[in-house]
Nucleic acid binder design. Structure first.
Lengths: 324, 324
DNA sequence: TTGAAAGCGGTACCAG
DNA sequence: CTGGTACCGCTTTCAA
């Protein structure tokens, strides 16, 4: 591999100068800079991250943990995170936690000396544990807010409020909410927001359900049993399963039941069955989390920031007035 | 951070001895080994990967590329890969390529000096490009076979043959195959295998389709237009979309149409609608790919190996005799 | 079997 | 603004 010294020789300067020209361009004269950059280009020079990490203490690696990859929700989140990391010349180590606090803690322990920081999507560890981690390493949580830890949260609770308002406005008085998964920080907040938004309605909270097609299938009968005229599923895969089963039972939306989803459907490539849903800026959330993480990494510990990303209510054909 | 020297002091030996005790236990005496291990334990010593990488040239990082994370197929694949990497003390850098050859090449260029090797799931780059990469860095392909490059391939073509035999045995003579995605190496091989297995049948190849619910919805009419009595979808999400649309049209399986999936349904949490499908050892495939990669990394370049993993035909209620 | 010493490829301080 | 030099933490000769 071509190293600094090779470039130095090619450019007729010292290794230190090459290092500066590459990392702090403003510390060398215009002339040498171009000469060095030229030489580096000619030789196809690339930084040796290990060597750099050894002296700077920064590895250029970020850990990004997600509860699961089976939920398509995280596909755009990771895409956004990856894009942000790449722009900063960093790489993402994606780790799946299966929604287990132990696995989360294990990964913090295992990786804390290998990465510059952690982004944790929907972590289930105790708040105190997360604060602890944040004291040792830069940490940003996604869809979870902990005192003293920077976070990016998609405001689905507000979206649930809007969704509730929409349904109540159509005349619904009994609404079912298919919640889940266990340990979710957002889930109870969505439910509360919904209840507050529709004080005149009865809200039947069902669940928890995993974000899977089959869970939606299973949930259908429970939903019908509640006698609700509208149902909100917290995830798109859940909704699709529900939809499937209801169709099989000869129920159609919005005629027999209004159907809505508290999650984005576009990740599932779902526009065809026109389902009322919340548009969630998932890629943006992933991007923001990593950007914020990089700020902390670069500028050292600062006061925690909490970003709340708005969601948009997309009213479509699956919701309507309840049957008399 | 506690370093080698700290442990050395604690154990009353030199740093070199600690290094040996930790990395080549058989090179030190029983007594010192335990003493060193004790000391290391006491101090909570952890290797500094950067320092180690600088001298050994091995980073303990593996790149794992996948076309997409929206397809739940890759969730177990990555889980298996991650487990194998973790057992070897390595970390996985997961990169999404969106099925683009340029992005694949870009990632090889970007990462080739940062990782010990590459595992590429369903890469679309030209075979010559992949061979080229393999010459510079250990490379294992998954669901793609290239001369001279180690590979792990799930034998879905054989599975398609079995599926075809099953359908033909039931009396089907016109079978539709919903294929995709573009650039897939396996896809044409599955189609050929199907055709060979059912020489008496007419096989209508539809597609390519992306592995999305909505694509399945859209495909339904095309399927009905073919007048086929059975349909095989290449991915589970596609199948679910198809199933939804067919149900909506009042068609039921297997009465109106036999339905099968060339992909595993369990990743989608799908057992309820009893769909005939291939069971694909996805986690095992991911695990094997990484294990083989690690072998190459450890033992240096050896002859390429090609592993073919069998799939299992799960015959369920969605397939039956065609309606007279 | 063990210790001393020489780097691995960079960065950053210190003179000049 | 530039070059010389001392490390960063670990592995690996080379001697003892």
């Amino acid at each position: 591999m071509t190293k600094l010294e090779d470039v130095a020789e090619e450019a007729g300067v010292s290794a230190s100068t090459v290092s500066r020209a590459l990392s702090r361009p403003d510390m060398v004269s215009e002339a040498t800079r171009t000469r060095v950059l030229d030489a580096a280009e000619r030789l196809g020079y690339r930084h040796n991250q290990a060597a750099r990490a050894l002296v700077t203490g920064r590895t250029g690696l970020l850990a990004f943990s997600v509860p699961s990859l089976a939920n398509p929700y995280y596909a755009p989140v990771i895409a956004g995170a990856q894009a942000a990391a790449e722009e900063a010349g960093c790489e993402l180590i994606v780790v799946v936690t299966d929604g287990s606090a132990e696995r989360e803690q294990a990964l913090y322990a295992r990786l804390s000396e290998r990465v510059d920081g952690f982004a944790a999507a929907a972590p289930v560890s105790a708040g105190t544990q997360l604060s602890q981690v944040a004291r040792k390493r830069p940490l940003v949580t996604l869809n979870r807010r902990v005192r003293g830890v920077s976070s990016v949260v998609v405001d689905t609770p507000a979206g649930m409020g809007a969704l509730g308002g929409h349904l109540a406005g159509l005349g619904h008085r009994r609404i079912a909410y298919l919640g889940g998964p266990d340990g979710s920080w957002l889930d109870p907040r969505r439910l509360s927001a919904l209840r507050e938004a529709v004080p005149d309605c009865e809200v039947a909270a069902l669940g928890p359900y995993p974000p899977e097609f089959e869970a939606g299938v299973r949930a259908a009968d429970a939903v019908l049993d509640t006698g609700c005229t509208a149902v909100i599923a917290y995830s798109s895969t859940l909704l699709i399963g529900l939809l499937h089963r209801l169709t099989l039972l000869g129920k159609s939306a919005p005629h027999d039941l209004s159907l809505a989803c508290a999650d984005d459907l576009s990740a599932s490539g779902l526009a065809m069955p026109e389902v009322t849903a919340l548009h969630v800026p998932a890629a943006e959330a992933g991007r923001r989390a990593v950007q914020r993480l990089l700020e902390t990494v670069t500028s050292g510990p600062t006061a925690a920031t909490h970003q709340l990303l708005p969601v948009e209510l997309l009213t479509r054909a699956s919701t309507g007035r309840p049957a008399a």
